[in-house]
Amino acid sequence: MKTNTTIAIIGATGSMGSAISRSLATANFPLLLCANDQDKLQGLLQDIKSANAPAKVETINCSKEASWEADIIIMAVPYQAEKEIAQKISEVAAQKIVISIANPLNNTFDGLLTSPDTSAAEELQKALPLSKVVKAFNTTFAADFAQPVIDGKQVDAFIAGDHQPSVETVTQLVASAGFNPIVAGGLKESRILENMQLLLIKLGMKYNYNWHAGWKILHN
């Protein structure tokens, strides 16, 4: 993956969006940060620049323009907002990698809004038929980006996609963010990955993990 690969982060001021933005800025990728709240967006830019003056980061207030200029698009928005944004960017996102981080959680965090035979990532792929949708970053909490090593173990981050070159590119991106990337399989594996994060959220609330927890596969 080239270090001059431009990445657009749509929804950059949300908890996950800002965490991803801060993390990837330290890897020196050119970033285009897009969000509705311009005050928060400028604040995020100043924070990133204060921590890392050479960071190649710009703000942009249009998801379509950001997607047009980017090589990779990260949809750091809630599941409910993905379809509307997909309609705006569908033409300019053609043939580009679009990363789905969304978990389609219901309001009570005890189930998913999607039916068992699909996932948020698969629905996004249908909305962006000419793009290469890859699932990533959905099994990690925002706090994990600042501290991807927990109890001495590097947090695993799972990836799923049908286009192998795109999956390989996203795997490198996940590693650049400090996680141990694990390719789970094709895009349909997103159904499992989204349920994994639902389970982690339930466990976090039950055992008070303080939103800093992650998955780790132990093996020989």
Score class of each variant (00 low, 15 high):
135 K>P: 00
73 I>V: 15
108 T>S: 12
37 D>E: 09
40 K>Q: 13
106 N>L: 06
135 K>N: 07
23 S>N: 04
210 N>I: 01
183 V>A: 07
205 M>A: 15
166 S>M: 07
117 D>N: 15
191 R>A: 06
141 F>Y: 11
107 N>L: 04
197 Q>V: 00
186 G>L: 08
99 I>V: 15
46 Q>N: 15
87 Q>P: 00
14 G>M: 13
56 K>R: 14
117 D>R: 09
114 T>L: 08
21 S>V: 00
187 L>M: 05
220 N>Y: 01
75 M>V: 02
138 N>Q: 13
108 T>C: 01
16 M>H: 15
15 S>A: 14
199 L>M: 09
106 N>S: 06
1 M>P: 07
153 K>W: 02
103 N>L: 11
166 S>Q: 08
137 F>S: 01
71 D>W: 00
149 V>F: 04
193 L>T: 04
32 L>S: 05
112 L>Y: 04
51 A>R: 14
197 Q>S: 04
36 N>D: 09
108 T>F: 05
130 L>F: 03
22 R>H: 13
194 E>S: 10
29 F>V: 00
37 D>F: 03
141 F>S: 04
188 K>A: 08
60 I>V: 11
73 I>R: 05
175 A>R: 11
96 K>D: 11
118 T>N: 08
35 A>N: 08
96 K>L: 08
170 V>W: 09
66 A>E: 02
170 V>S: 05
203 L>C: 02
99 I>K: 04
141 F>H: 02
97 I>R: 03
10 I>S: 06
12 A>E: 08
205 M>Y: 11
83 K>E: 15
108 T>Q: 12
184 A>G: 02
75 M>Q: 06
213 A>N: 10
197 Q>T: 09
104 P>A: 12
63 S>T: 09
19 A>K: 05
195 N>L: 10
107 N>T: 03
145 F>E: 05
8 A>G: 04
80 Q>V: 13
146 A>D: 13
93 A>L: 02
219 H>M: 13
137 F>A: 02
7 I>V: 13
102 A>Q: 10
1 M>F: 09
198 L>P: 03
182 I>N: 04
164 Q>A: 14
110 D>K: 09
166 S>F: 08
98 V>T: 13
35 A>P: 08
53 A>K: 12
178 G>Q: 13
93 A>P: 09
73 I>W: 01
12 A>Q: 12
150 I>W: 00
161 G>N: 09
220 N>G: 02
67 S>F: 00
44 L>Q: 09
3 T>I: 13
7 I>F: 03
110 D>G: 10
167 V>D: 03
204 G>W: 00
46 Q>Y: 02
30 P>K: 04
147 Q>T: 14
142 A>L: 04
24 L>P: 10
202 K>D: 00
24 L>G: 08
52 N>E: 01
173 L>Y: 11
209 Y>F: 15
